[in-house]
Amino acid sequence: MGGLVGQSRGKAGLRACGCAMVGFILVAGCADDGTPKGAASSGTPGTSATPSGTGGSGAAGTGASAPADKPGAATAIAMPPLDESKQPRTAAEARTLLGRVIIAEQDLGPQVVRSTPFESDPGRWPVLDEACVWQTDGLPDDVLATSTRHFHIPAKDGRGRVRISATVTVHHNREESGWETARAMEEVLRCPDQKLREGEDLKKLWGGALYLGEQMNGWTEDAFSESGDYVSAQDGGPHPYIWSQAQFGPVTMAISAKAAKGVTNDDLTAFVAQGTSVMMIQAKQQLGKAAG
């Protein structure tokens, strides 16, 4: 939804710095088609962010395999046309699709484990209120299904715990998923400081979006990212924070990562790029038109 998101972009001078951020993630973490680059040697905490060889939850056996000669790289799939006949029409169909797109912990690397709670309530939706505090509410009319999975890398060898979340949301159509991206941009403009929950805050947020074909974006219909500082009563801070969101047809896929002591922004970028790329590949496999 380049037109819709473009309307949001024009409301502030966010685009210039936002393009730099999105471009950085694409350069540092992904090739133009969404294939992760250098995740296996990026200095991530613990060991490399090498995928297990199967993407997502494995619900339909459609995961992206990593070529044996390129550790840490998911199989590249160019941007296919959307096959509208494959779009889910009901909440049940959307939940099935969601399960085939969202990643599991092994897609991010062997050091990544599930957090508790692992999955969000499928009937709830995050809402940023007027006071810039995140709340939950029932699903809006434009969302068929959504799910967030929570992972972490345990604290070890003087490094704090890295917190990672993956979110997939299925809308009725491409227009609705485009508006989701536009609203995400507006939230950063409205609330550069946000409260996640008591004792957990995001500070100095900034971000931006690139529509397909703009600058280096050749892998998603809209690439949106934000970054800033994460401050926690438990983890201290400020520490780096990154959010990256991609879109294919009616589906949006996002990864957020929060650092802790001894963890750098570059460490987070590898996981964010890896997770977003794998989910995008799986969405293309599920919803794209077959070649030929």
Results as ranks from 00 to 15, higher is better:
Gly236Val: 02
Asp235Gln: 06
Ser225Met: 15
Asp157Phe: 07
Glu105Ile: 00
Gly43Trp: 00
Phe151Glu: 01
His150Gln: 07
Ala233His: 03
His150Met: 12
Pro238Asp: 07
Ala209Glu: 12
Gly178Ile: 00
Gln286Asn: 12
Thr90Ala: 12
Gly6Val: 11
Gly38Trp: 02
Leu97Asn: 05
Asp129Leu: 14
Asp33His: 13
Leu14Ala: 14
Ile242Arg: 00
Ala257Lys: 02
Lys261Ala: 14
Leu82Glu: 06
Lys289Asn: 00
Arg95Ile: 02
Met253Pro: 02
Gly10Glu: 12
His171Val: 00
Val27Asn: 08
Leu97Pro: 01
Gly18Trp: 10
Gly56Ser: 14
Val143Lys: 08
Leu139Val: 04
Asp193Cys: 07
Thr220Asn: 05
Pro81Ile: 01
Gly213Phe: 13
Arg100Ile: 07
Gln135Tyr: 03
Pro88Glu: 07
Ala223Phe: 12
Leu108Cys: 08
Gln282Gly: 08
Val101Gln: 05
Leu26Val: 10
Asp107Ile: 05
Pro110Glu: 10
Asp142Thr: 10
Ala16Pro: 10
Thr181Glu: 15
Ala74Phe: 02
Gly288Trp: 04
Glu214Gly: 06
Arg161Leu: 03
Ala28Lys: 11
Gln286Glu: 14
Arg161Phe: 01
Ala166Phe: 02
Val143Pro: 12
Leu144Met: 12
Ile25Cys: 08
Ser41Met: 12
Val188Gln: 08
Gly99Pro: 04
Asn173Asp: 15
Pro126Glu: 11
Leu128Ser: 05
Phe151Arg: 01
Ser115Gly: 07
